[in-house]
Every structure is written in C-alpha cells, then in structure tokens.
Measured scan of single mutants.
Amino acid sequence: TTTITTTNEEDARRIATEWKNKGYTVHVEKRGTTFRIEVR
C-alpha cells in the first residue's frame, strides 16, 4: 500500500485519477486540510 498526502484538492484528484487509470485501487480520505490517498 502506498500512501500519498497533499493539502491541494486538485493534486489529490489528479493523483487519484492517474493511479486509477493504471489499474490500482485508490481510496481518498480527507483529514482536516489534508488529503490522504491510499493506493493498493
């Protein structure tokens, strides 16, 4: 599992989409101002 964190919502969406397009399972969680993107 790879975890990526960013405070930028646009980055979070872009990163999540990129990983999904590669065939990975992506889970995005917002904690306060931080977005945690888990890639499996």
Rank of each mutant, 00 (worst) to 15 (best):
V28F: 05
R14K: 09
R31G: 05
R13N: 11
K30A: 07
Y24P: 00
V26P: 02
T34L: 14
T6C: 13
T33E: 15
E38I: 15
T2W: 15
I37H: 00
D11F: 09
T2I: 15
N21M: 11
A12V: 05
T1M: 13
E10H: 09
E38A: 06
T17G: 08
D11W: 08
T34F: 12
G23T: 01
T7R: 08
R36M: 15
R13V: 12
K30L: 10
R36D: 08
K20L: 13
V28S: 03
T2F: 15
V39M: 05
A16V: 11
T17I: 12
R14N: 07
R13G: 06
T7M: 10
H27K: 11
T6R: 03
T17V: 10
R31L: 14
T5Q: 07
R36W: 15
T6A: 11
E10C: 10
Y24T: 01
N8K: 06
V39C: 06
K30S: 06
R31V: 15
H27S: 12
I15R: 02
G32R: 03
Y24F: 11
T6H: 03
V39L: 07
G32K: 04
K22F: 05
T6P: 01
T25S: 11
T17K: 11
T6F: 05
T33Q: 12
T5D: 07
T5C: 14
T7V: 08
R36L: 15
R40D: 08
V39D: 00
E29K: 08
I37Y: 00
R40K: 13
T1R: 10
N21W: 05
T3Y: 15
T34C: 15
A12N: 00
I15K: 02
E29A: 07
K20M: 14
R31T: 13
K22L: 11
R13L: 13
R36T: 14
K30I: 09
R14Y: 05
E10Y: 08
I37V: 09
R40A: 10
I37W: 00
T3H: 08
G23C: 05
I15N: 01
K20V: 12
G32C: 05
Y24E: 01
K20S: 11
N21T: 08
T7H: 10
T33G: 14
I37P: 01
T2Q: 11
T33C: 12
T17D: 13
I4G: 01
V26C: 03
G32Y: 04
T3W: 14
T3F: 14
K22N: 07
D11Q: 08
V26G: 00
T25R: 09
E10P: 06
G23Q: 02
N21A: 11
T25P: 04
K30T: 06
R40N: 09
R31S: 12
G23A: 02
T3C: 15
K22Q: 08
W19L: 09
A12G: 02
R14Q: 07
K30H: 08
T5L: 14
K30E: 05
N8P: 01
E9P: 09
T3Q: 06
E10I: 09
R13D: 09
I15H: 03
E10V: 09
E38V: 15
T6V: 14
A16Y: 08
I4P: 01
G32P: 02
D11S: 07
T33I: 11
E18M: 11
A16D: 01
T7K: 09
I15W: 06
E9D: 05
T2M: 15
T1C: 15
K30M: 09
A12W: 04
Y24R: 03
Y24H: 05
T33F: 08
I4W: 10
T25H: 14
I4N: 02
R36N: 10
T2Y: 14
E10L: 09
K20D: 04
T1Q: 09
R13M: 13
R36H: 15
K30C: 12
R13F: 13
R14A: 08
T1P: 10
T5E: 13
A12L: 03
F35G: 01
V39G: 01
E18F: 15
A16S: 07
A16R: 03
Y24W: 05
N8S: 12
E38W: 10
T5Y: 15
E18N: 07
G23N: 03
K22E: 05
K22I: 05
T3G: 04
Y24Q: 01
A12R: 01
V39S: 01
I37T: 01
N21H: 07
D11H: 09
V28Y: 05
H27C: 15
R31K: 11
T3M: 11
T1K: 10
N8V: 07
T34N: 11
V26I: 05
W19M: 07
E29Y: 14
G23E: 02
K20H: 10
A16C: 11
E9N: 04
E29I: 13
K30D: 05
T2C: 15
R31A: 10
E18H: 13
A12M: 08
R36P: 01
A16I: 11
T7E: 13
R31Y: 13
N8H: 06
T34Q: 13
K20N: 06
T3K: 05
T6E: 04
E9L: 11
T5A: 05
R14E: 05
T25Y: 12
W19G: 01
T25Q: 12
V39N: 01
R14V: 06
T2P: 06
T33H: 12
E29M: 09
G23W: 01
R36Q: 13
H27T: 14
T25L: 12
K22W: 06
T1N: 09
T5F: 15
T34D: 14
K30G: 04
I15S: 02
V39Y: 03
V39H: 01
T34I: 14
E38F: 13
E9H: 07
I4S: 02
G32A: 04
T17L: 13
